[in-house]
Design a protein around this nucleic acid. Structure first.
Length: 299
DNA sequence: CCTAGTATGAAGTGGCGTCA
DNA sequence: TGACGCCACTTCATACTAGG
């Protein structure tokens, strides 16, 4: 299982460089020393381990750290965008819970509903490229099933964590809700990541975590919201491709470029009469059909 | 059957030499 | 000077064993 201390250290280094833009190894070392006093873990390291950590931070968190000509380290590329802060949060909570173990008499945390209790195991397997056996239970299945998967990465969507992994049975990339995974087991088998694989580009045109069918293509979607709802949609975009094309006292019209997956359709249904689908026609028809069948009381 | 102690292999770390 | 490969050493996690 992944070394908890090491992960805390990687987080601390990333945190330090995020906060102070750039720092020399000595400054980072000082920071770790101070952090050690707070957490009780000895996080002190030598330059050699620090250099290894830089590589680990890149492979686990997709954060690239470089050294400039003034002997200062800085974050050159931060691929963590909206995803990692939540991950850090999950770690922090986990870590805090570990620290406050003695307080368990007084504190009763909900048993990590998000399934994050296995997160160290997942990170370890992703990093080491180890095939894992997961016991997974779908919402609609009574019986959990076991399957061997190649873990590629983790993704957060609307407060839930998902494992992105290749199912060894069907040879397709799937997402598994962490709260649906009851148990993980590391196997002896290793795998290698496809060269063109990148979690971010994989989900670029997805609404959430539902993967499109093989031959499906992302589509240009134009939606018109009521002005009131529009304010909400503007502050909390449906997707990163969202662009506001009309914004007046009558409507707020936005354009998206994504796959029409069933989770996206469900999201649209939630906006009911405050939303009108302008295009494509097929999506408009789909929504109409769902509304119609919902009204059909004959069933 | 459970717990504490021990053995063993794996993973993490530090130091040194080399390269750019 | 920083990055990195290599090797030796340390630490950690797990399996195993003995004793209650």
């Amino acid at each position: 299982m992944a070394n908890r201390k090491q992960l805390i250290r990687l987080l601390a280094i990333t945190e330090k460089l995020r906060n102070s833009k750039e720092a020399s190894f000595d400054e980072i070392s000082d920071y770790l020393k101070r952090k050690s006093e707070i957490t009780g873990d000895d996080l002190n390291i030598t330059l050699r381990t620090f250099q290894r950590d830089i590589k680990d931070i890149y492979s686990i968190f997709d954060v690239e750290i470089k050294c400039n000509s003034y002997h200062k380290y800085y974050i050159q590329y931060d691929g963590s965008d909206e995803m990692q802060p939540r991950m850090f949060e999950a770690f922090d909570i986990l870590h805090a819970l570990k620290i406050t173990n003695d307080l368990s008499l007084y504190i009763h945390p909900e048993k990590h509903g998000g399934g994050t209790e296995n997160i160290y195991g997942f990170i370890h397997a992703i990093k080491k490229q180890i095939v894992i056996k997961i016991t997974h239970k779908k919402f609609w299945d009574a019986e959990p099933n076991k399957r061997n998967v190649e873990p590629y990465g983790l993704k957060e969507f609307r407060g839930r964590w998902y494992l992105i992994a290749k199912d060894k049975n069907s040879n397709t990339i799937k997402t598994f809700g962490l709260d649906r995974i009851h148990d993980i087991e590391l196997t002896k088998e290793k795998f290698s990541l496809p060269e063109d694989f990148n979690v971010k580009t994989l989900f670029k045109s997805c609404f959430g975590i539902v993967m499109p069918e093989k031959n499906e293509k992302p589509e240009k979607i134009i939606l018109s919201f009521s002005p009131l709802k529009g304010n909400f949609i503007k502050s909390l975009p449906l997707h990163e491709s969202q662009q506001v094309i009309i914004d007046n006292e009558k409507e707020c019209r936005v354009q998206l470029f994504i796959y029409i997956t069933h989770d996206f359709v469900r999201e649209l249904l939630a906006h009911s009469e405050e939303l009108e689908v302008i295009s494509p026609k097929s999506l408009k028809n789909k929504l109409n059909q769902i509304y119609k069948s919902a009204l059909n009381t004959e069933k």
